[in-house]
Design a protein around this nucleic acid. Structure first.
Length: 111
DNA sequence: CCTGTGACATAAG
DNA sequence: CCTTATGCCACAG
């Protein structure tokens, strides 16, 4: 496969798709894994389209502190939190509990 | 080409 | 980790 053939968005979707249930990662981690650590903001933006696609759990992607900064982009007000809790991830006040334990590092898992 | 924008990250106070 | 400021970069218009 030629990674260069894939757009930035597609790369983000692929990585996000690899996230197992009950796990979470940060935009920066994905961006860094893609070699664009400084484009972390773009990762979130790519998620905009991801939310409409299936197989791309955008709700499992949060900022580096485990804060559900993008929950406003989901349909409901607490949809993102509900999805995470449904997978066993505790969320209180838009923040993931034990984010450290739920963190999924693409470098360690995918490599 | 230039400007605006954004679900971030990092630094400084 | 709070707030404020700056950098960052890909994309839309």
């Amino acid at each position: 496969m030629n990674p260069d053939n894939k757009n930035f968005f597609q790369k983000v979707y692929e990585v996000a798709r690899q996230i197992p249930e009950g796990r979470v990662t940060s935009y920066g981690a994905i961006a860094k894994y893609l070699g664009m650590a400084r484009s972390a903001r773009m990762v979130g933006w790519a998620m905009n389209g991801a939310g409409r696609l299936e197989g791309v759990p955008a709700h499992r992607v949060v900022n580096k502190i485990g804060l559900l900064t993008g929950k406003h982009h989901f349909d409901g007000t607490n949809l993102m939190q509900q999805l995470l809790e449904n997978e066993g991830v505790k969320v209180v006040d838009n923040q993931i509990i034990d984010f450290d334990k739920h963190f999924w590092d693409p470098f360690k898992e995918l490599r």
